[in-house]
Amino acid sequence: MKGMTSIVRDVTRLVAGVVMVYGVYVSCTGHLTPGGGFAGGVIIMAGVVMLVLAFGGERANELLAESRCHVLDGSGALAFALVALLGFFAGGFFVNFLPRGRVHQLVSGGMILPANLAISLKVAAGLIGIFLALVLATRQPSSQE
């Protein structure tokens, strides 16, 4: 899969970083505004999809190998399970073990912020990995025929 024209490349170079930072923002403020880990992860993935479509699959594979996506995906899932397991310090599975804090502050809600971050990492890495696998699979002509 080839990249696109230089106009698309330059616009993508300007915009993709902002898109990804917005994704991190959405997943960090899921307990204050609508959004959360899933939406933030999908926004981060959208930024990477822009980069892959504009610069081509080979370049994307150099920057972010698919195997690294597997590791990040698994570690996100592990982190979410770890947040759930740490609730045993307060009495049980998924019990909110951190102090609640004041409502409307960034650091509030106890374990909800780390859980959102873990979900965001998991969703972003998993979907980027699937997207890279699809792009690289369609690049090769199928060998059955």
Partner: peptide
């Protein structure tokens, strides 16, 4: 739960098993 967004409080605290 200490959150301002009720939906996230339900998703990740009351009903965290579903998530």
């Amino acid at each position: 739960t200490g959150v301002a967004n009720c939906v996230m409080g339900i998703l990740l605290d009351y009903r965290a098993y579903d998530t």
